[in-house]
């Protein structure tokens, strides 16, 4: 087996997402994953992706529909797909029930969108349950929020750092440093939050971003991921090799060993 590669931030579509090409998009992720060498896609499905309720504010019914589809995909795909259970913390009871239901069926982490600011107390019950089950929480992040943006209640690294300080036993994955906004702000914001692990995904490929991430938090806190642009994921993977800042061991950490450490034991059996 070649060196494992875990994509910590992936999404798949499903039949109720309002797109007729949803199967093509999923097939493209697997096709590209094979070329890149992804051994496990850690993925979530975000409600109905805006078809029946907003992507970042999914209704409880849509949350359940997405999670059901994600569970079905995991059953069909075996070791190459693992699930993050998506919840909307505005519906606390439903969120907790979904976590229990999906973890019992194999989910290994929690996906939080932008339904509520990251430091809001409403996220506490979700994080408490995540701690009980040893589930990392992947939180959608806008790197440096300077104002409100439509269709999401955005959070930045500083917001997530406040949540992480309240829940030191929970590992948080800060989503997509290349996913929009000013990542430089993020690196400062999470430097002293050891339970936050940034993922490298996002369409942004600014030169200097990877170097600054390594310098700010070190290789053992970085996670490789792709989100919705696997081309930039591959580019970053190649660029990491050229920074001159990483040893071969560091590369293994970013490719898969950090993920294997922060998720529950056995989460990647057969894939890493």
């Amino acid at each position: 087996m070649n060196e494992p590669l875990i994509d910590c931030h992936a999404h798949f579509l499903h039949a109720f997402c309002g797109r007729s090409d949803w199967q093509d998009v999923n097939a493209a992720r697997f096709r590209a994953g094979e070329k890149i060498g992804v051994t496990c896609h850690v993925a979530s499905m975000l409600g109905t992706y805006g078809f029946m309720s907003p992507t970042y504010f999914p209704s409880p019914d849509d949350v359940t529909a997405g999670n059901d589809a994600m569970l079905a995909m995991c059953r069909g795909e075996g070791k190459r797909v693992r699930m993050m259970v998506t919840v909307n913390p505005n519906h606390t009871g439903h969120a907790l029930e979904e976590i229990e239901r999906c973890v019992a069926a194999g989910a290994i982490g929690v996906k939080l969108l932008a339904s509520r600011r990251a430091d809001d107390r409403l996220l506490d019950p979700v994080c408490t349950l995540a701690a009980m089950h040893g589930l990392p929480v992947l939180h959608h992040i806008w790197q440096h929020r300077r104002r409100e943006w439509p269709n999401q209640e955005i959070s930045d690294g500083a917001d997530l750092a406040r949540l992480a300080a309240r829940h030191p036993k929970v590992i948080f994955i800060l989503a997509h440093i290349g996913g929009g906004g000013d990542y430089a702000h993020t690196f400062h914001a999470l430097r002293d939050s050891p339970n936050i692990h940034p993922d490298l995904s996002g369409s942004g490929v600014d030169r200097g971003m990877l170097d600054d991430a390594i310098k700010a938090v070190g290789a053992r806190r970085l996670l490789w991921g792709s989100d919705v642009t696997m081309c930039t994921g591959l580019a970053k993977l190649r660029a990491l090799e050229t920074t001159g800042l990483l040893s071969a061991d560091d590369m293994k950490d970013i490719r898969w060993r950090n993920a294997a450490r922060i998720f529950r034991a056995g989460s990647f059996d057969g894939a890493a």
Binding site: V205, R207, L234, R238, A239
Partner: peptide, 18 residues
Amino acid sequence: HWPLRLTQTPRANLDLLP
């Protein structure tokens, strides 16, 4: 778009074509 963006990106994109 060097030096603003990673020069590896367009090559990666071509490598991942169907």
